[in-house]
Design a protein around this nucleic acid. Structure first.
Length: 863
RNA sequence: GGGCGAGUGGCGGAACGGCAGACGCGCCAGCUUUAGGAGCUGGUGUCGCAAGACGUGCGAGUUCGAAUCUCGCCUCGCCCACCA
């Protein structure tokens, strides 16, 4: 063979860029607002951190495969892309390098756009949004005003978590772990009191717990449920007792102390009360003889929450205030303590201490020698006395509980709550762990909060016509702890929208999670200058059909976005209840050493280098093949070689000039028959008769067409379920089957069908090579606009099925039978098998279990 | 401490309660090549010459049949962590 006849080697660099340019020029992936069959596929937009890394490739490739398949099935797919570009990293990077955050962010975006484009993903770039663009944050500000007008944005003095390193206020969700560290830099967080803007997410706490109709991963739902933390119980008022009060306190002037409990049934066992050290009543309750110690304890508790609570086995400490309250059902006086295990922000910041039935109260009572009264016991038994007994089902009954004695604990909860309500001492109550969302940041690189402060009219919203409130460029953003906007006179100066008086502009900017809570709405009409989104487009596209991204956003971004949609729905701005119908999380790509990729470990793979070496298709395919998409997996330098070889085999198989791998001429005429082309030759066919040859070809055809149609069905299903790794393995099997058919014999038509199908099925995963080969085979442009193949069930069905035959559950033989063979016949054949007979060894079968089409099990043991 | 998830060849991983290990990597042998590499063909769970036996973290259980379901334990990962 001469060099010119040798198949051209696969070289992606000769065609990948060409096709990407062509697709973009032809707007192949443009999503049109008026088309039927809308399918909105969204991937979490990237932060503009610098470079596109392999994790971005991984997160993007899966959804792209799905988008491409849906398009080929005739749906109108929107797969948008944008950048989350406000936020702390930009500001910190800017401080480090002494450049402006915008001069760090925008070149990053420029570079990332180029890098993202090298993936060949089918994004509709015409819809790109950048959250730090005034055209975008203008509408973020507009949304703030809508929330403000609806009473969902408010300002309040609050102790806030403050990261001393980043010099920034953190949202509650951004403080991690028992030792309360900054989510970004891991520095222990401290507390500060500041006026802060909040969004009233707690108003929607109950509705946010309703996940009906949402196809989300169960662990994410669980995390949101836990985060919202709804508890049902009762609030109960404990009057402050006159006795024990020393001079300086005036119990008659004190309102009752309200507690929250999930166990009102245990109230007869409440032998003390505990208030959070920060509780407002503490200074007034404390008796003079206890004041010095109490104040010292309060100060220590404040310091403790400020610094760290590292000790996992913290001692449960407290301090007696000197005051007493009255248990409203026993009328017994109970001492009032303060302790730092009672949290100021949860429930009412006060509890009734029931040591017999709460582990924390038990520890506390033991430490301070407080009485322990058992009021719940297992039916007919004594409860354990060396620990708190916390069970409260229908199997436990109330004891020592006055008129409620004998009720089950579950009944007691209802009865005692009702009794308290009748007497005006409290009643049923629900409390939540979730707090309102702190959205203000004393930072520069974010959307300014559109509020001005007038000396006459107070806080006033900036009129919508004056939006955006532009972020000034010329600021000094040294890390001082106060917003750099506070020293910018030009920015600060404003006029009151009510009376025109001089006013001072709000200098806080918004949490970047505000920006990302609505970007999926902006994608529907990103250039609209008159509204945040076009109502028609919103109705057409939303809610998002499938949202993909990392599981790390389980409670931050995903909860905020749900809150936004519910609030906007109530204001009449959107027409749906939930932003994301279905959610899927991809896993993480690890280094080849199974560790997280990091520069310090030296296990980072650079996508740009890989593109240069293997081309985009090979990287895409390897990432899909590496393992289940929702689990991620380790990078493998040799694994990518395997995928690269697969594409090279496809390349050779699909070349119109090189229909088989060895380069043999693919035609053969059979004497006495009309001339007929086959691909490949029958091994040792020198003496083969024409009839045998034809029979071999027909058999090969059936096998190949079966493989082709089985692959269509399997790959379609796997792609749809995001099981990309098994889909790719089935494409490899089809390519192996084609190579097999070429050596064993099959008709040209069957081979053509198989190769064309392979290219169509491969197109979503490896779009460039599929397009290139499609063109080389003389097919019409573009492979990505072809109809998705449909499996022919009859062709996919097997002529013969293999049935495993077990004896007592162990595999002993296999039967080859036609699919329609009767059960009786199968049983006869199975029992007739020599190997089965050998294992039966004369024992009679007790019974024969047959699973049609699956197996035969001959059971000998009696049972 | 609590919750959730996962443990399958040398490696990544397949397997509606029904043939464990698809597909790929790696490895072995052969063909090809001046050589290297690439490519092609075959083999490759463990033990055993073989027949065969044993095999999905460990131990029980349910079932004709368990990687898969149940219970207990071990290990790893993630999330939450005084929420009354």
């Amino acid at each position: 063979m001469t060099a010119s006849e040798r198949p051209e080697r696969l070289d992606p660099s000769t065609y990948e860029a060409k096709w990407r340019e062509r697709w973009e020029r032809d707007e192949l992936y443009r999503a049109h607002d008026d088309a039927s069959g809308p399918f909105y596929l969204l991937t979490m937009f990237p932060y503009t951190s610098g470079d596109v890394h392999i994790g971005h490739w991984y997160a993007s490739t899966g959804p792209d495969v799905l988008a491409r398949m849906h398009r080929m099935r005739g749906e109108q797919v929107m797969l948008p892309m944008g950048f989350d570009s406000f936020g702390l990293p930009a500001e910190n990077a800017a401080i480090d390098r002494g450049i402006h955050p915008a001069d760090w962010t925008y070149p990053n975006i420029e570079r990332m756009r180029t890098q993202f484009r090298s993936m060949g993903a089918s994004w509709d770039w015409s819809r790109e949004v950048v959250t730090s663009d005034p055209e975008y944050y203008r509408w973020t500000q507009w949304l703030f005003l809508q929330f403000y007008k609806a009473g969902l944005a408010y300002k309040a003095m609050a102790p806030v978590d403050w990261c001393p390193k980043d010099q920034v206020v953190l949202a509650r969700e951004q403080v991690l772990g028992a030792d309360r560290r900054c989510w970004r830099c891991d520095t222990p967080v401290i507390k500060r009191d500041l006026e802060q803007w909040f969004f009233r997410i707690t108003k929607y706490a109950d509705e946010l717990l309703d996940f009906s109709g949402m196809d989300w991963p169960e662990p994410i739902l669980l995390m949101q449920r836990n985060w919202i933390g709804r508890s049902e119980g009762a609030e109960i008022d404990f009057p402050v007792a006159p006795l024990g009060s020393a001079s300086g306190t005036d119990p008659d002037g004190l309102e009752p102390i309200r507690v929250f409990t999930t166990r009102p049934d245990t109230i007869f066992g409440a032998t003390f009360m505990v208030l959070a050290p920060e509780h407002a009543l503490v200074p007034r309750l404390t008796t003079d003889d206890r004041r010095a110690e109490v104040e010292a304890y309060v100060a220590a508790a404040r310091r403790e929450t400020e610094i760290d609570r590292l000790a996992a086995e913290r001692e449960r400490t407290g301090m007696f205030t000197g005051a007493y309250a009255v248990n409203p059902l026993t009328d017994e006086p109970v001492p009032i303590w303060i302790a730092d295990y009672v949290l100021p922000g949860y429930g009412t910041g006060a509890i009734m201490g029931v040591p017999a039935h709460d582990e924390r109260d038990y520890d506390f009572a033991r430490r301070y020698d407080l009485p322990i009264e058992v009021v719940v016991a297992p039916r007919g038994e004594e409860p354990p006395t060396d620990a708190a007994f916390t069970a409260h089902t229908d199997d436990e009954v109330l004891v020592n509980s006055g008129e409620f004695t004998g009720m089950s604990a579950a009944e007691g909860i209802a009865a005692i709550t009702a009794h308290l309500a009748e007497r005006g001492l409290g009643g049923p109550a629900v409390t939540y762990k979730i707090r309102d969302w702190l959205v203000s940041r004393q930072r520069y690189w974010g959307a300014p909060i559109p509020i001005v402060y007038c000396e006459v009219h107070g806080a006033q919203p900036v009129p919508e016509s004056e939006l955006p409130v532009l972020l000034p460029r010329d600021v000094d953003f040294a890390s001082t702890g106060v917003s750099p906007l506070q020293s910018h006179e030009g920015f600060l100066a404003a006029t009151c929208p009510v009376g025109g008086e001089p006013a001072r502009r709000e200098t806080d900017t918004m949490d970047t999670f505000v920006d990302s809570s609505w970007y999926y709405l902006r994608y529907t009409s990103p250039r609209n200058a008159d509204a945040a989104w076009d109502r028609e487009a919103m109705r057409h596209w939303l809610p998002v059909n499938l949202y993909t991204g990392g599981a790390e956003h389980a409670v931050l971004h995903l909860l905020y976005s749900r809150f936004f949609v519910k609030a906007l729905r109530d204001m009449g701005h959107v027409a749906f209840n939930e932003p994301f119908v279905a959610l899927r999380n991809q896993g993480q790509i690890l280094g080849a050493d199974h560790q997280r990729m990091s520069k310090s470990r030296g296990n980072v793979v650079n996508p740009d280098d890989l593109v240069a070496r293997y081309g985009a298709d090979t990287i895409r395919l390897f990432l899909l093949f590496i393992g289940p998409w929702d689990q991620g997996g380790p990078w493998s330098p040799t694994g990518i070689e395997g995928v690269s070889r697969f594409l090279a085999r496809v390349w050779n198989l699909a070349q119109p000039s090189a229909p088989n791998a060895t380069g043999a001429t693919p035609t053969l005429s059979v004497p006495g028959m009309p001339p007929r082309s086959i691909a490949g030759e029958i091994p040792g066919s020198g003496g083969t008769s024409a009839d045998e040859l034809l029979a071999a070809i027909e058999g090969g055809d059936r096998a190949l067409r079966r493989a082709t149609h089985q692959t269509i069905a399997a790959v379609t299903e796997d792609y749809g379920e995001l099981h990309f790794n098994t889909a790719i393995s089935k494409l490899m099997e089809l390519s192996n089957a084609i190579a097999d058919a070429l050596t064993r014999g099959a008709s040209r038509a069957a081979v053509e069908e198989a190769v064309d199908t392979l290219l169509l099925l491969l197109a979503p995963a490896a779009p460039h090579i599929a397009e290139e080969l499609w063109e080389r085979r003389g097919k019409p442009y573009s492979v990505h606009q072809q109809a998705w193949p449909v499996a022919d069930r009859a062709l996919a069905a097997a002529d013969l099925i293999e049935l495993p035959v077990q004896v007592d559950g162990k595999l002993r033989d296999r039967l080859q039978v036609a699919p329609e063979t009767s059960a009786e016949e199968i049983e006869r054949l199975a029992l007739a098998s020599e190997r089965v007979q050998a294992y039966l060894d004369g024992r009679p079968p007790a019974r024969v279990v047959q699973i049609p089409g699956r197996l035969v099990n001959i059971v000998t043991k009696g049972s």
